[in-house]
Nucleic acid binder design. Structure first.
Lengths: 336, 336
DNA sequence: CTGAAAGCGCTTACAG
DNA sequence: CTGAAAGCGCTTACAG
């Protein structure tokens, strides 16, 4: 579009003229070829090739009220996207699942409040038929704005405060946490600390809840917060060691944070798992590349993306809302 | 858009009626408020708020022939995006530079041939005003298709075979390579190997050319190819050690590959830099996190993104074409 | 099976 | 400063 170079781009009118038919017939060929005679079909196809015609999506969308595009909105400081391998898997899965339906996935990063505003405007202006929301924090205004427009939305992870309003696909964080902590107990650990995710995310809240399901109200000295980055895991571990030097296990709510925690423990001269057992969450590459390899909880992100796309399609075509909770699985390795 | 829920979304007609003015006046308010009386202005603004009006982008674009969106097309197997920190910096810089102009940046990943086709259709259907092309390999059909449509394009890195056709911003790869290899020589190294990038990318070709500028036609045993991943760097290093066990330096054409090479050298009992000096390229985080820290070539990716956005704007508004080559800089650390 | 026509929701000269 | 009107390029009943 635009650009000052080149001649005017061909329209359906041009194709119709070349093919010797009406605009309506060209349109029918473009939209499945129903109710078109074989002669007209080939004439139009030839004319399309000859003129180099490509549909004008704006004109089409104006009448169909659809755009055949989906937004993947990442509400997070952009760096996270690149540090966290889960996002990559999610994005890839969604792209593929949508590509099969010939729908383009557009990734938009909305890290700052201002970004979210701009993206909100952009989305509600009709650019996309639906939105996949990733890493939206509690209280973000984006969800409300999108909902007010009646835009179909599917969230990755439980959308805190909107569980009833919008569809979502989540791993069973709480049960995963339970499994891991029970495993630590079965190994004879008694002073089990936790490094949580951000408390305004479902992974932060629900994994802590799972920990409490098993251990009851925790000793506050055994709880530290991280933000899923490796650095934050290291800082939290330092805190814990200072406050509770007698801890004999730590459940770290993401593998990446666990990497940071492991480094700090080793620097402090703690043997893993002899002195301190370490459990992670995600079963990402980090879990396997770590030394020792991490016991962790597997989430099936490939499946999450497939389900997200399915729910979004449902929501677009029928307005349905639903939640899918996928099971999580304990993977025992050398760190516990 | 779409979705079966909710009432019909308000149009300009609705706003005009509520405000007691004509559609034309509403439009003028929306487009800068010129030639509008103060009374009309406030009436319209109030009516917009009351109705919750948001412009229909398709209708607007249909008449303006602009979309106010830009595509960032990553023509690469998707994983690269996440493994290579340069992409992250580039993406972030472009997003910011465009946000300042209130333009949304859409990231599209086109890893497979089929993806590229779909994206080609999508782009040429008018969804965006211009394209930032990243990591396009030589011979890819995407460039030709976009050019045929007269779409403004700016490439990151020299677009092999299209240097005259499309704008691009590149670091001075060749000179950077020259600097690094000269530095290795100045350290007394005589058997200097190279691990190149893919030979269908400018970084692959031009850095090798810089190496040859300094050393002349190389001993083929001293040349191995990688694909910018860490693994490929390791594999290439193994090859080199086998073919030329007497090498005393290696210029690795990306820091990430250098990480792989360093690991292999250390496993082989080589001391760095005493036995083998290692030079990287990019000055990424990897260079600093490595042990020993890498001597490398700094590319200013932040500046690359700013320049890319500037050139694209030029191209959109005036159809101009140009190339910007940014200087590279030797950063000496402990590995040489 | 096909064409003529209405209409999607905007912007922008053109008169006034 | 403002309104009426043309037109952007499509799709889709509606007749035939």
């Amino acid at each position: 579009m635009s650009s000052s170079t080149g001649p005017r781009r061909p329209t359906m009118e041009d194709v119709a003229e070349v093919a010797g038919v009406s605009r309506g017939t060209v349109s029918r060929v473009l939209n499945g070829g129903h109710y078109v005679s074989p002669d007209a079909l080939t004439a139009v196809q030839r004319a399309i090739r000859k003129t180099g015609y490509v549909v004008n999506q704006h004109a089409r969308s104006l009448v169909t009220q659809r755009s055949d595009s989906i937004a993947f909105i990442l509400s997070d400081p952009q760096d996270r996207l690149f540090e966290d391998p889960n996002f990559a898997i999610l994005l890839k899965g969604c792209t593929q699942a949508l590509a099969e339906r010939d729908i383009t996935l557009l990734l938009t990063v909305a890290g700052t409040q201002e970004d979210r505003k701009r993206v909100g405007r952009w989305v509600t202006a009709g650019h996309v038929d639906g939105v996949l929301l990733v890493s939206e924090h509690a209280g973000s205004p984006l969800i409300n704005e999108l909902r007010a427009r009646g835009l179909p939305i599917v969230a990755a992870g439980r959308p805190i405060g909107h569980e009833r309003d919008i569809s979502y696909v989540a791993a069973d964080d709480r049960d995963g946490a339970r499994q891991l902590v029970e495993h630590l107990r079965s190994r004879g650990r008694r002073r089990i600390a936790i490094i949580t995710g951000p408390i305004d995310t479902p992974g932060g809240v629900d994994r802590l809840a799972g920990y409490q399901d098993v251990l009851g109200e925790p000793d506050p000295r055994l709880v530290a917060n991280g933000d899923y980055t490796q650095d934050s895991g290291a800082r939290a571990m330092e805190e814990l060691l200072q406050r509770a030097p007698d801890l004999d296990a730590v459940f770290v709510c993401s593998d990446l944070m666990a990497l940071g925690a492991v480094a700090v423990l080793q620097r402090a001269g703690k043997r893993i798992p002899e002195d301190v057992a370490v459990g992670g969450f995600d079963d990402s590459k980090a879990a396997v590349s770590a030394t020792p390899q991490l016991t962790t909880i597997r989430q099936d992100f490939a499946r999450v993306s497939v389900e997200m796309v399915r729910l979004l399609q449902d929501s677009i075509t029928s307005g349905g809302r639903s939640a899918v909770i996928l099971p999580t699985e304990l993977v025992v390795r050398d760190s516990t």
